[in-house]
């Protein structure tokens, strides 16, 4: 669980990434109004970020990333805009007693970029675990930039989801052809149920004359079933896929290093 000190550190770094004008605007709308007024205006201020803070992607210093990774594992694998940072600061300004109601209500009306910031920010809430259902709902989204906010560099899933929820995230990440190596905690998230689902998935894809990302094998080596092994024997592979499958069949030691798999993903 995130601590108050970690939250504060995150906010401090985030604020240095905004211009003076942006930072003042945020201050004026957030911390310098009464808690009661802020609660009331929260959804509108959250939206207005779009007009007062730039959407540009933040460029980080090495040291900042090191600090942010300790607070938010996977941080450097995601893309953060200045608007994302400002919106997360606003989320953290809400009182923990009432943030569940406020944020839940905002989820119901949020536009695309608001959803992205919301899903990124959940992990940083002290009561993040109360938002599990929201995160699981997010996995069902059809908007792929929103899905990416859940899958790429977001530590929430590994920390708070049940195995079933986590497995849905991984299966969908592959299904919609997003990058597995960007999922935080990916190697710690291997499990037999997932490996079985993925083997059914690959059989289905092959039957349809389609392929799957070689990243998939990251989640199922060690759980390889005989039926899939037989199918592999009947197929020809090339390039990265061949290299990966050869390693899986020979149980190459490289398979146990994340560097190997990250290179496959990139």
């Amino acid at each position: 669980m995130i601590t108050k000190v970690e939250q504060q550190n995150f906010i401090e770094i985030a604020k240095t990434k905004l211009s003076d004008i942006e930072s003042n605007w945020l201050q004026q709308k957030g911390t310098s109004v009464s808690a009661q007024e802020f609660e009331k205006k929260f959804p509108i201020v959250f939206s207005l970020v779009a007009r007062f803070i730039k959407k540009e992607e933040v460029v980080w210093l090495e040291q900042e990333l090191l600090t942010l990774e300790t607070i938010y594992p996977g941080f450097s694998k995601g893309v953060w805009t200045k608007q994302d940072l400002a919106r997360v600061v606003l989320m953290l300004t809400l009182n923990t007693d009432t943030n569940k109601a406020r944020i839940s209500s905002l989820f119901e009306t949020a536009e695309v970029f608001e959803l992205i910031a919301l899903y990124k920010g959940l992990y940083l809430l002290e009561n993040a675990s109360e938002f599990k259902a929201h995160f699981e709902e997010g996995i069902r989204t059809n908007m792929m930039n929103v899905f990416e906010a859940l899958s790429a560099g977001n530590p929430f899933a590994k920390k708070y989801l049940s195995e079933a929820g986590w497995n849905q995230l991984i299966l969908k990440t592959l299904f919609v052809e997003q990058k597995l190596y960007k999922v935080e905690g990916i190697d710690a998230g291997k499990n037999e149920n997932l490996a079985n689902m993925l083997q059914d998935f690959v059989k289905e894809r092959w039957a349809a004359g389609r392929s799957v990302s070689p990243e998939m094998w990251r989640m199922l080596y060690g759980f390889l079933r005989e039926d899939v092994k037989t199918l592999i024997g009947k197929r020809n592979f090339e390039g990265k896929e061949k290299k990966t499958i050869d390693c899986v069949l020979t149980q190459n030691e490289q398979l146990n290093t994340s560097e190997f798999w990250n290179a496959i993903g990139k």
């Binding site: 992607e57 908007m143 792929m144």
Partner: peptide
């Protein structure tokens, strides 16, 4: 990054 998003969007829209 905008582009990466776009490519993925296009693909996944059709798949979904």
């Amino acid at each position: 990054s905008v582009l990466r998003g776009q490519q993925a969007e296009k693909l996944s829209f059709k798949k979904e």
